[in-house]
Design a protein around this nucleic acid. Structure first.
Lengths: 132, 132
DNA sequence: ACTTGTTAGTTACAAAAGCAACTATTATTC
DNA sequence: GAATAATAGTTGCTTTTGTAACTAACAAGT
């Protein structure tokens, strides 16, 4: 089962990876960070680590890359100067919107051959396995 | 969906990875090669690449590593000296058997909370998505 | 207030993956 | 049958990831 999951994950993400790589020169982790910020609003790096289950060094590097691309900005919190909130810039939001749309299209295409109930079951299953 | 698949794949394979890493110092690709050889008998490196969807350099390196661990042996085919058939040694077979058992246990544990029909559906779904 | 511990994030170094060029062997085509 | 193309596998170099040690800021206990 892990093997099947890996294969499926690989096949599906490779394809979409090509999109954001070609369009914005983004890496997988960078897209994940953008996605989380776009979806959940401003977050700290730590929160992204926890939600996305990505190691903090990966997030740290992705944040630097995205910052230099002007896709996000950070602001140190005055009440605890260890934290910094990350938020998408206008450019970043546009990128997010664009890629989100692409992702949706991709997802729809992928799921087209399955019934509504199958899709629901799948989702439930994966969420359970992924321990969300 | 790709996101969910990735998370699920990650969670499940990390755990099992620890097993073969600790027991035999094997890397993910190495386990995959052993698995394919154990499951389908002797194969060439190319066949493993295609079946397991792994790049040939990764397979090449995994084969070297496994060879130096005496888990597999290779034999150049006389009729086409470009190919070499890979097969598990006795040690390799034992390793495969052991890890297979572990994998089965792990799988059973993972799937325990799902009904038979759910499992069957999942399997079907993943196979379809992974384009097998 | 000062040691001790924790938490957020970074950096440096090591391991692994990806990519492109290479060798050696066989197939093809003119 | 020589030239060209194709295939299996390897090697070297670059990029990405993983790990562990580090800095900086805060928290708690004594």
């Amino acid at each position: 089962m892990p093997y099947l999951l890996n294969q499926a994950a690989d096949v599906t993400s490779r394809e979409f990876e090509a999109t954001y790589k070609a369009k914005y020169g983004m890496l997988r982790t960078e897209w994940r960070v953008v996605f989380h910020l776009g979806r959940y609003g401003s977050l700290t790096a730590k929160e992204i680590c926890d939600r996305a289950r990505v190691h903090k060094t990966k997030v740290s590097r992705a944040v630097h890359a995205l910052e230099s691309k002007k896709f996000l900005s950070r602001k140190t919190l005055p009440d605890d100067r260890r934290h910094e909130t990350l938020s998408l810039t206008k450019t970043g939001s546009r990128v997010f919107a664009d890629l989100c749309e692409q992702a949706q299209l991709f997802d729809a295409k992928l799921m087209a051959e399955f019934s509504k109930s199958e899709r629901a079951m799948m989702r439930k299953f994966l969420i359970r396995v992924a321990k969300f």
